[in-house]
Write a protein that binds this DNA or RNA. Structure first.
Lengths: 213, 213, 213, 213
DNA sequence: CATGAATGAGCGTTCATTCAT
DNA sequence: GATGAATGAACGCTCATTCAT
């Protein structure tokens, strides 16, 4: 019995198959995009017949949502693991950013699916993604608020700043995806500087305003 | 139908027809996304038969590329018009950002096509988009370099900062698209503050570095 | 240019194509039944590609409904044409029945689709069929009522008798379908006798009742 | 799972399992129709895994044929039980009809499967059904022949009359299925009157013939 | 010039059926 | 004996694209 035959014949437990399918789906969705991806290719890559996909993960939409959910959860977990609460705020932010870019760098497919694809598909996908994003923003906001209140800054605009920071990180990650030669530390450090200095300025009260010209 | 009657039906010059088609295509692509958009609907909205579209603008891909090109060119022109070279650098940046958000706010369909759609479709579309982006980055880089060299900062990393800024602007615009209640000035001002403060820090040489923990 | 090529190339007007498609659909539905019939086969038989069917007649359900409607209408028209109002009631009934069996005998496929298939498919098809049946029953009822009132019979149960007669005719036609050797006149005459004698008995007041045993 | 435990799970004898499966199949076929019924649902309703069904009853077709056979046999038995040979012919017919409608009324699912479903599916099912029908026609024919010969009527057309009667009964039952408010006795009585009066006319020699118009 | 008519090719989905366990 | 796991094959439907008119 050859290895190939063995593969075709073995009856794997559902859990294993589901992982195989999700792995394949992430890869194909990442490479082709949601619409260009065909269930046929996914089933080929997964080494499983199409009916299995439908039996275990449901429709194409369901499958895509499952991908986003799994990958986004992993990403968020990686970032959260990087942030250690006993450190001072700036170091927390730094470690969070470093973990984020580290993860994106080592899981490019994952990121492509979660961000590039999910963001443009309306409906149920956005919801899944939105929830994750909200969590990320909350994470950052918590940090900023701690600094801001200490320093006496009005806490009202921290959330929008957090949103901008998350957005900037996403955007930078997207930009970085096409430049594999830059080390993740460098990218993280650039954003950290921009963010911390900019935020520092706001905390000091030295805001910029347009002058009359 | 006699020759006489034939002459009476609208027989518009090619240029006008092309504009009609492109307008319709931008609208439909923006509403439905690239893949959900059907040539049938575009031809309906344009009030032109499908063979006309193929004759004038080529395949669906060609049509989409043409949309991106036209809209991106307009956007870039609007931003460039905002930047007035006789002003000091910070005011140039400010007017550029203001013009950008102003344009995005008043041409939401256009932006949806150019950014949200184009970014997720691989292949030929990215090229069109990439070229425009490079122009934008160059525009900003020119500004930064002028300040940086004046102040003695090493000019090596200005380009990546410019890229980060452009990326942040794009991301923020995307975020803003779903929040029509925020005035464009406010959004522009937030990004301006973050950018200018952060950049100012770098110029001063007061960079942030991770400490040992 | 061969005949075949000519057929592939000719652009026929919509109306003609629709008839072709409906003809093919009636044939295939009649032979295979609704569920076993495939759109592929119908398109093959019609000598048209599948997209044409969807463009002109809509979904499989729509197509089936269109078949029923067309065939049922024709059948009813044939029967109505047979009934001549200037004749006495029994001759009207006779000509109606004769026309009915004549039609069924010469349009077996049509009848199979209208009755055998439509009757067992729920939903929208039944409605179409029900409407036709109601018309048929009304037609018969009108006849019976005229006789019944003349003779003084209570007209309350004529409708159910009409329903029974229509049902018996349908059933007899179904039975007859598998016995092509029997002439249509004979079948019609048998039902006519059963009906007229039975109805005559009722009119005379000589009804049958179960006796105690 | 130990040998001990295995023995405790329900390990019913084949006969019982088959009945379970057939019961479930009749229910599902009756509700959904042959094609809409899925083996999955049947196995669910039966509380048995799909491979069991295939092991015991064979393919879907086989299963359906088994359903028809069982139900049709029951129906015929019920009718035959109603007919008591010691009674006069008209009372025999009456009791047969009454038993028929009584059975259909109390076993609607059964009837739906036997008649409505089986009649529209070609091939093997018709055979099963045809055999049963032939038996029913023979049953009625026997009755009619006895009367007819006694009275001197030519016996040649009794079979077709019997067929018409059986067909009318089937059709009336089908019509009645959707009108549960009518009592079975009424329906039976209507058909009995129509049949007996009509048949009586023939026996008397007072047949109807079309006149010249 | 302009279009209604026409299609090849492919997609998402389902289902009866069969093994390995 | 009994089942979860697995699939081949087909079906309904759509869409970008192209001719004949």
């Amino acid at each position: 019995m050859t290895v190939e035959e063995r593969r075709r014949v073995k009856r794997l437990p559902r859990e294993v198959r589901e992982r195989q399918i999700l792995d394949a789906a992430v890869r194909v969705f990442s490479e082709r995009g949601y619409h260009e991806a065909s269930m046929d290719e996914i089933s080929d890559v997964a080494g499983v017949s199409k009916p299995m996909i439908y039996a275990y993960l449901g429709s194409k939409e369901d499958l895509f949502a499952a991908c986003i959910h799994r990958e986004a959860t992993q990403l968020l977990a990686a970032v959260a693991a990087g942030v250690r609460p006993e450190l001072p705020p700036d170091m927390q932010l730094w470690h969070g950013l470093a973990a984020f870019f580290e993860y994106v760098g080592t899981h490019r497919e994952s990121w492509r699916v979660v961000h590039r694809q999910a963001i443009t598909q309306g409906g149920p996908f956005s919801d899944e993604l939105l929830a994750m994003r909200t969590q990320a923003i909350t994470l950052v906001d918590t940090l900023l608020v701690r600094v801001a209140t200490k320093e006496g800054l009005d806490g009202s605009s921290t959330e929008s700043l957090a949103a901008a920071l998350v957005g900037a990180a996403e955007s930078l990650a997207d930009w970085w995806l096409d430049r594999p030669e830059v080390p993740s530390r460098i990218v993280a450090s650039r954003l950290m500087n921009l963010a911390w200095m900019g935020f520092g300025g706001l905390v000091n009260g030295s805001t910029w305003h347009p002058r009359e010209t």
